[in-house]
């Protein structure tokens, strides 16, 4: 087995891993702050990709303008997601919110199938030269993808760590009642959490089209992969999700190359199940 193949798979894994990272970061943020599993997160990413296709292909915007527009619109839609499918159910058992977001994801998936059909839609990439780096073929669009992913995750980290909003958000996640007591408007924190998470989900969507095509069916598998990442890392642990996202992306690519292409996704689910059973709090979680 030549080193070029391994290098190529490492790069492919890094690409997928970057998507997983940015996707899982949003999923993990929502869980960490609100104790809510957002089953519609995958469909928000899908919607990001499909809307980008619409605004670039049908309306005629360029990639960057279209992507910015889509991310902003989807982030604002996060407010609605919170108010319609999460907030009304918060006092109930955890499972009820799962059901309401499942309902939302079902609506979005099937609505998108009606609007766009099930076929994949290509989006024109802003640039797509192929560069060769020591035997590994890399497209410039995929370099953009990796760069933006890391910038976004770094931005999220800085926001959570240093800004007032970030501190409020973390306080709410740590102790809801305590946060309310010291005068934090937790309703607003919940709104912004879903706004940020939806924005991240949509960002993942507009980045995916740089390396593959947009399709209404891309949300479901991504959601389950996202769960695998979030659970292996420890639910609510955003930093852990970053490390695990990359790890999962890379090992998945190697698994696909050397073990079985067919069971690539199966590999991720097995890792998730094993970790969940042996260490339910995740690799980086505390009991």
């Amino acid at each position: 087995m030549s080193w070029d193949v391994i290098g190529q798979q490492l790069w492919n894994g890094l690409l997928n891993g970057s998507i997983y990272v940015i996707f899982a970061a949003g999923l993990s943020l929502v869980f960490g702050v609100m104790r809510v599993i957002n089953m519609a997160h995958g469909e928000l990413t899908m919607l990001g990709a499909m809307l980008l296709f619409t605004v670039t292909d049908l309306v005629g915007l360029g990639y960057f303008a279209g992507a910015a527009l889509v991310v902003v619109v989807m982030a604002l839609a996060g407010f609605l997601v919170n108010r319609v499918t999460v907030r009304p159910f918060l006092g109930h058992s955890e499972l009820v919110v799962i059901l309401s977001t499942v309902a939302l994801s079902f609506m979005l998936l099937n609505g998108s199938l009606v609007v766009w059909g099930s076929g994949p839609k290509g989006v024109e990439k802003p640039f797509n030269e192929i560069v060769q780096v020591g035997g590994v073929y890399v497209t410039t669009a995929s370099l953009l993808l990796v760069g933006v992913c890391f910038a976004a995750v770094l931005g999220l980290y800085l926001m959570l760590t240093f800004t007032k909003l970030g501190k409020k958000t973390r306080a709410t996640g740590q102790n809801l009642l305590g946060a309310r007591l010291i005068g934090i408007n937790t309703t607003a924190v919940y709104d912004t959490t879903l706004i940020v998470a939806s924005g991240l989900a949509a960002l993942a969507g507009v980045l995916i089209v740089l390396v593959s095509s947009a399709s209404p069916n891309l949300g479901q598998p991504l959601l389950i992969t996202g769960f695998a990442v979030v659970i292996v890392a420890g639910m609510g642990n955003v930093a852990g999700a970053v490390a695990v996202g990359l790890f999962m992306g890379i090992t998945e690519a190697l698994f696909g190359q050397f073990v079985s292409t067919y069971y690539r996704q199966g590999y991720l689910y097995v890792v998730m199940i094993v970790v969940l059973l042996l260490r339910p709090q995740g690799l980086f979680g505390r009991k």
Partner: peptide, 22 residues
């Protein structure tokens, strides 16, 4: 033996999609 509620929902989701893949 180890999981309830949310974790159980996700473990079973994992097993379910695994079975579907197979």
């Amino acid at each position: 033996r180890r999981t309830r509620n949310l974790e159980l929902a996700i473990v079973t989701l994992g097993f379910g999609v695994l079975a579907w893949t197979v």
